[in-house]
Simulated assay, not measured.
Amino acid sequence: MYRDFITVGILLKKLKIKNKTKIKTFNDLVPDNWIYIQEKDVKMGRIQIFNNWSPYMVKDDQNVWIGLEYFCNEGDELWNMDDHKFADFAINELSDIDIINKDDVIDWVIIRMPKTYPAYFGTYDRFSIIREFTDHFENLFLVGRNGMHRYNNMDHSMLTAMTAVENIRQGVTSKDNLWMINAEEDYHEE
């Protein structure tokens, strides 16, 4: 099972929240890449500030490009919401939690991504059965978040792919080194 995902990209003149840290940022933008939203009265799960990933992600560096992340299931109310209605909904949520002024919105885009996050419920406790079955295929190397049904970050996902390529080049058929990537406890939530 997977959780699906919707990103609402919003281009803004500015954010209402300000950098109150000692970290120097371009245009004094808050220094975070991600802001996790804990307010119970909104459905938004996280905000990405794309300017902080790279200033080249925004054509006009005086503007702010953010992504609002919504966790959902394909076919549910959020997934089926009309794009214009969803954009208004998301902008209202941002305004309600005092992150933006609605008048600062320049543009928006909505991207729906099915099967984004592996779900660790349902029959996940029997995942080892699937792994043991697929590991028997010498020429099948499961990689990345969806291939391994594991919530790897992008670096770990790319590393599983690079390791699989190296295994193929070296004639290694064991998949053990792939499954050891991101197995360190430091990366796991409690």
Rank of each mutant, 00 (worst) to 15 (best):
Glu39Trp: 02
Phe89His: 07
Asp96Thr: 12
Ile66Trp: 04
Tyr36Leu: 09
Lys16Val: 04
Thr25Asp: 02
Asp41Cys: 13
Phe89Gly: 05
Met44Leu: 11
Asp28Trp: 00
Val58Asp: 03
Trp34Val: 04
Lys20Gly: 12
Thr25Pro: 15
Lys43His: 15
Lys24Pro: 05
Phe89Trp: 07
Met57Pro: 13
Glu77Lys: 11
Asp76Ala: 07
Tyr36Met: 06
Met57Gln: 13
Glu93Ile: 01
Lys85Ile: 14
Ile97Arg: 09
Asn92Cys: 06
Lys40Ser: 12
Asp82Thr: 14
Val64Phe: 02
Leu12Asp: 01
Asp32Leu: 02
Gln38Asn: 10
Leu15Tyr: 00
Gly67Asn: 06
Ala90Asp: 03
Lys16Cys: 09
Glu74Gln: 09
Pro55Ile: 14
Phe86Leu: 10
Gln62Glu: 12
Leu68Gly: 04
Ile91Glu: 05
Ile17Glu: 06
Lys22His: 06
Ile10Cys: 00
Leu68Ala: 08
Leu94Pro: 01
Ile49Asn: 01
Lys20His: 06
Thr21Met: 15
Gln62Leu: 14
Phe86Met: 10
Asp82Ala: 08
Leu15Phe: 03
Val30Thr: 01
Trp65Ser: 04
Glu69Ile: 07
Asp60Asn: 15
Asp60His: 14
Asp88Arg: 04
Leu94Gly: 00
Ala87Tyr: 01
Val8Ile: 05
Val42Pro: 14
Ile35Phe: 02
Leu12Trp: 03
Val64Gly: 05
